[in-house]
Design a protein around this nucleic acid. Structure first.
Lengths: 236, 236
DNA sequence: CCTTTTGTTAATGTAAGGTTAAACCTAATT
DNA sequence: AATTAGGTTTAACCTTACATTAACAAAAGG
């Protein structure tokens, strides 16, 4: 099979500008889905898998940041580029906190945008080839469905997991029996590594341990100063 | 564990601005090497491993782009951020072509730079997990897993090792049956060779001997004034 | 011997992790 | 507008893990 075009979600309320941009991107071999506001953007995001999101910051109903946060809850990896008219410092900072990959001030040159897109895609390509699209895990007698965010014990009633619980358990599961470095979880899930996020993470470890208690063969061990290790005994 | 600070190469010809920026970065826990021009920048780059390069574009003798190209020839991965006074489109494009990770126009807000650095480092954090060196050793009837920091006797329950215990035993294992000079451990693990670190090391030797007691064929011998020797009897 | 080096144990101080509850925030509902 | 609910962060307090230092005993080696 030939290489699939990259899919871009473009959320931009200005119909003229949006359409022009969409056409321009499509001319450059990207598949583009254009949403006219934050609401619609989120709906479309849920329905499909995108390689990149380009979000206007100022939109009616739901601004770009809010949308980005919702997107991040569903998907921690997809790159996000913000478009903004004003280059307010707080806005930029806010953007990076939500996990922006880049930032563009309107009006911008479309070629520049194209280069940024290329650069980001390249990073993704080299970056996380490995930690792929894996969403289902067997953890001892548990089944974790990371896409639907639930945890089942012995095929019984599923326990719902919050986004953070889910992401953390997923990261641990990806490294089953191996070290999952603190730093990794903090940068990937919390997008910041400081005293508070670190404490927050500990709180979540406690929650997960509680969830995992039913199976005595499953445990989360700490490696002092390094990180955590999800071990499943009895299958070695 | 002594978490290593990230190392940044800063190449900036304006002495005032360069110094201020360097200090600011160092205050934020980065190790910064400051070069005053492209030539010097490349020399310093070759001499060390950096996690990030911040290059001024306009510099005498060798501009930022040329330097970036040379850096890319040596290292395809290290992230590069360009600083530039003028926001010429061609420059931006040129930058991305050379493989820039980001682009900042002077004057810029230092907090913004900090966020960009963080964002870039986060992206990098993902792939650095995998690199496997030598972490597993068989020592008589023991198995040392130096990555997960545990020691197993006869495949039984693993004993957890502290970072220092682990490093020291690993060094001994690397020199199994051979002399492991005091000085080596002190400079590699304690990063200082004086009376106190030396005594500290002796304390750790005592701890290791205790751990290794279960196997009578394994012992740590002292070579007076020289160092220690991890010997495994019965397999020669 | 008698000085230096090493062996060992215990005491101390600090940092990291564990746990629980309260505070906070935002979205959804009344 | 006020309330509620879910999710997350912050705070407080406690426990455990580590590394260093001190103190004293025992070997080594000139």
């Amino acid at each position: 099979m030939e290489e699939q075009n990259k899919k871009i979600l473009l959320v931009e309320d200005d119909p003229n500008f949006g359409t022009v941009l969409k056409d321009y991107l499509m001319m450059n071999d990207y598949d583009v889905v254009h949403a006219k506001n934050g609401m619609e953007g989120f709906e479309k995001f849920k329905k499909d898998d995108f390689d990149l999101c380009i979000l206007d910051v100022m939109m009616p109903y739901k601004d770009g940041f809010t949308l980005a946060k919702e997107i991040r809850e569903k998907n921690t990896d997809v790159p996000i580029i913000f478009l903004t008219a004003k280059a307010m410092k707080e806005d930029v900072l806010k953007g990076y906190k939500v996990g922006a990959d880049d930032y563009l001030n309107k009006p911008f040159d479309s070629e520049v945008l194209l280069m940024k897109i290329k650069a980001i895609m390249q990073r993704k390509a080299t970056d996380s080839v490995a930690d792929s699209k894996q969403f289902e895990f067997k953890i001892g007698r548990f089944d974790l469905n990371s896409k639907l965010r639930f945890l089942k014990f012995d095929g019984g009633e599923p326990t719902k997991l919050s986004p953070k619980e889910n992401e953390l358990l997923r990261l641990l599961a990806l490294h089953e029996n191996d070290l999952m470095p603190r730093e990794l979880a903090l940068t990937k899930i919390w997008r910041d590594d400081n005293y508070f996020t670190s404490r927050s993470m500990d709180v979540y470890i406690a929650k997960l341990r509680k969830y995992l208690k039913p199976d005595p063969d499953v445990e989360i061990l700490n490696i002092h100063g390094e990180g955590f290790r999800l071990v499943v005994n009895g299958n070695d």
